[in-house]
Structure formats: C-alpha cells, structure tokens
C-alpha cells in the first residue's frame, strides 16, 4: 500500500494512541470496562494495522514472529505462576490473599493485576500470531483484486 499516503500518515498517528489505549484498558480494568482480553485484542490491533498498511515484513521487524510465539506462552505462564505462588505460601490455588496477608483486599488487587496481565499478554500474542500465520501465506494482493 505504498501509494496510500493518507493511510500511512493516519496509521503512524494512530498506532501509538491505540497502544496507549490498550494499556489504559489493561491497567484500568478494575475501575472501568475492560480487562486483559479486551486490552490484548486492542494491543494486537495496533500491530495488525501497522502490518496491513506498511506490509508484513515491516510489522515483523517491530514484533518478530519468534517473540510473538514466546509471548503466547508467557501470558499463560504468568497466570499459572500466580496460582502456584499462592499455593507455595500455604493458600489455595489462585487465592490472592497470599500477596498481602495483613490486608486481603490489597492482595486481591495485586492478584487481579497479575492474572489480567497474563491474559493480556497471551491474547496479544495469539492474535498477532494468527494474523502473521494468515498474512504470510498468500502473495501480496493488488487493491483492484478485492
């Protein structure tokens, strides 16, 4: 899409804002709508938009496929580790009271923060990974082919 000047300029302006919005949805999920799932999707949209407008090869420079694959597993690992951590401290699996025994609701805040982060990371990785898998197959298409 090298001839779409407006698309390229608007994309450059939007990508940063989209990532910022994803981070807001991720870390403000306790107070406003949203959470890990939505934030992960919004975060991946930033990379997918970049890939659509500037080409897959450019997107793969920013977020290389090997890193995407690691990201997919890392989120589940963070989530699972949160549970194992509370287990090791003598609490139930995924009982966030373990993070702050004197103040259980603070522990809940930390626990929710950790598992939502895990969810967001996995969803980002999976969405970008699936997009890469689809987009890397066919030869690039002309605009008129649609």
């Amino acid at each position: 899409m090298h001839h779409h000047l407006i698309l390229r300029v608007v994309t450059k302006m939007l990508v940063g804002t989209i990532i910022l919005f994803a981070l807001y949805v991720q870390f403000h999920g306790d107070f406003s709508p949203g959470g890990g799932f939505q934030a992960g999707v919004i975060m991946s949209v930033a990379f997918i938009l970049y890939g659509i407008v500037f080409g897959l090869s450019q997107a793969e420079v920013v977020f290389p496929p090997w890193l995407v694959h690691k990201t997919m597993a890392l989120g589940v690992l963070i989530y699972g580790t949160t549970g194992v951590f509370s287990l090791l401290l003598g609490y139930d699996f995924l009982d966030y009271g373990a993070f702050s025994p004197d103040h259980p609701s603070h522990g809940q805040h930390w626990g929710i923060f950790a598992v939502e982060l895990g969810v967001g990371i996995t969803v980002t990785g999976v969405m970008v990974g699936i997009y890469y898998a689809f987009a890397s197959r066919p030869p690039p298409m002309d605009d008129e082919d649609w």
């Binding site: 306790d30 609701s105 805040h109 929710i112």
Partner: peptide, 8 residues
C-alpha cells in the same frame, strides 16, 4: 476485593 468493576 474492593474493586469498583464487579465484572473484573
């Protein structure tokens, strides 16, 4: 839990 968003 002391989180305003009950869904979360």
């Amino acid at each position: 839990i002391d989180v305003p968003n009950v869904v979360t």
